[in-house]
Amino acid sequence: MSDTTPQPATPQKAPYPVEVEAGKTYYWCVCGLSAKQPFCDGKHKGGAFAPLKYTAEKDGRAWFCGCKRTGKAPLCDGRHKAL
């Protein structure tokens, strides 16, 4: 039996460092097709993916996953090193 689960595109094999603001909500691109990586621009519409809501707990730098394979979505967990 083959796995028919759709896989996201991989826009880059490294995280995106982003300065975030405490309490602000961001929508991480899950499909990998957005032109505004790492955030959603709506290119997923009609597909199997939807953006992931992320609200920053504190001001500072967050490392958003660029390979779209993280186990800590939307933040990078280093899985890109195995691609």
Rank of each mutant, 00 (worst) to 15 (best):
C40L: 04
T25M: 11
G60V: 10
P8C: 11
L52P: 01
G23N: 11
A50E: 12
P15K: 07
A9C: 11
L52W: 06
A9D: 14
L83H: 04
T5P: 11
K72Q: 13
C29G: 06
A9P: 09
L75E: 07
V30R: 15
A48I: 01
A56T: 04
G42D: 02
G32I: 04
S34D: 03
C31K: 02
R69L: 14
P74T: 01
K43D: 08
P38T: 05
S2H: 13
A82R: 05
F39I: 03
C67F: 03
R61H: 08
T70A: 02
K13V: 11
C29V: 07
P6R: 08
L75P: 00
V18N: 10
Q12P: 09
D59E: 12
Q37R: 08
P8E: 11
A14G: 12
Y16K: 04
L75R: 01
E57S: 13
F64W: 05
G60P: 07
K72Y: 09
T10I: 14
Y16F: 15
P8V: 09
F49Y: 01
F49H: 00
S2Y: 13
A62N: 02
A62Y: 11
L33I: 01
Y54E: 04
V30N: 14
G60F: 10
A82I: 02
A48Q: 04
Y54F: 15
P15V: 09
K45M: 04
G32P: 03
E19Y: 10
Q12N: 12
T10L: 06
Y54N: 05
Y26I: 06
G78H: 00
F64E: 03
